[in-house]
């Protein structure tokens, strides 16, 4: 198993390199970071030329990629525009742990992403927990009461929400539970942000402000997960070992939750493991609507400013996470099912 993991990790290196080349090439066509620099007017031509030179954006794309990858501390830059490269570079490159500096904020990329990651993990893990718990409850109940009225209603309701666009649900929930509830004098939820400025950033405030974003993130996934659980549970409930357990006179909860669910969980673990890396990327629409300071919004904000270092940092983080979690899923498979062995 150890040799298998090491082999998979070694295989990931050229894969990540290839991904980085493709992403970097795509970023070169995302717009000009100096066009307006987030302002309302076009950047003056003299400033555009100077900034391109100072920030290294006047170099060919392949040179910019090499600098991003291995740094530029071995090269010199022309900072004063006299045509002579006289200033040594300071970047070390991602291979030496330097992910560069944001073109927008001039902060190190690791710091920019690191500030947002806890917020995203908080939101996404809470949502993932809600999704798994509610989907398990619905899925198991539906499997045990197949084709009953409750099963049909639950199926209908979950698919109703599943087919609803995220932004529509988010804004609808915001107007109902925040704006209209307040108008009607009912207890209401906050619209945006993580806390009330008058109260401060306390855990209670953060939890209170998470309700709507977590609900928005969860509703769509619950439908998918619950249907999957229902299907695998139905399959497991029809197996011989479940019939044997029943015939032995085991209590129903033990049959369902120990014998059937344990075996039905294997494919669910795969889905969850493959979804987990994308938690790092945040949820662009939900974070944007609720003003949640996560990596999804960070990505969107910096893509719109063509901030290559930050966008590359986020995308490479997700790419690496996908690869790692796939390995973890494979390992978990072997752990859960003794019949599976890797060589």
């Amino acid at each position: 198993m150890t040799r298998y993991i090491i082999r998979r990790l070694l295989q990931a290196i050229p894969l990540l390199l290839l991904i980085s080349i493709v992403l970097f090439a795509l970023m070169q066509n995302m717009g000009d970071p100096l066009a307006t620099m987030g302002g309302r007017k076009v950047t003056r031509s003299e400033d555009r030329i100077r900034l391109a030179r100072q920030l290294g954006l006047d170099k060919p794309a392949y040179v910019q990629y090499i600098y991003w990858l291995i740094g530029n501390d071995w090269a010199k830059t022309d900072m004063d525009g006299d045509g002579v490269a006289e200033t040594p570079g300071v970047r070390k490159g991602v291979l030496r742990g330097d992910w560069g500096v944001s073109l927008v904020t001039r902060k190190p990329v690791t710091e920019v992403i690191g500030e947002r990651l806890p917020n995203t993990l908080l939101l996404m893990l809470a949502a993932e927990a809600v999704i798994i718990i509610v989907a398990l409850l619905i899925g198991i109940y539906s499997a045990l009461n197949q084709y009953s009225a409750a099963d049909n209603i639950l199926t209908g309701v979950t698919f109703f929400f599943y087919s609803m666009p995220v932004f529509f649900f988010a804004l609808g929930a915001m107007y109902i539970f925040s704006v209209n509830f307040k108008k009607m004098g009912l207890p209401y939820l906050p619209t945006v942000g993580m806390f009330e400025p008058e109260v401060g950033q306390t855990p209670a405030q953060v939890a209170w402000h998470m309700i709507l974003p977590v609900a928005t993130l969860s509703f769509g996934f619950i439908a998918g997960y619950s249907r999957y659980i229902r299907s695998t549970m139905l399959e497991a409930m029809g197996q011989d070992y479940v019939r044997t357990a029943k015939s032995k006179g085991l209590p129903r909860p033990q049959v369902v939750y120990v014998h059937a669910l344990k075996n039905a969980a294997l494919p669910i673990v795969t889905i969850v493991a493959l979804d987990l890396p994308f938690l790092l990327g945040g949820a662009i629409v939900t974070e944007r609507i609720f003003g949640w300071p996560g990596t999804g919004r960070l990505f969107l904000d910096h893509v719109s400013r063509s901030d290559t270092p930050v966008v590359m940092g986020i995308l490479m983080m997700i790419a690496a996470a996908v690869i790692i979690f796939q390995i973890i899923a494979d390992v978990a498979y072997a752990w859960l099912d003794p019949r599976i062995r890797y060589k």
Binding site: P118, N119, L121, L122, L125, A126, E128, A129, I132, M194, F195, P197, E198, V199, G200, Q201, T202, P203, Q205, V206, A207
Partner: peptide, 21 residues
Amino acid sequence: LSVLVVASMLLAACGGAATQP
């Protein structure tokens, strides 16, 4: 899962002292 959620919540709220009125 619970530990991760609680840890993230604490991380997100760790600036709370600075933002207390």
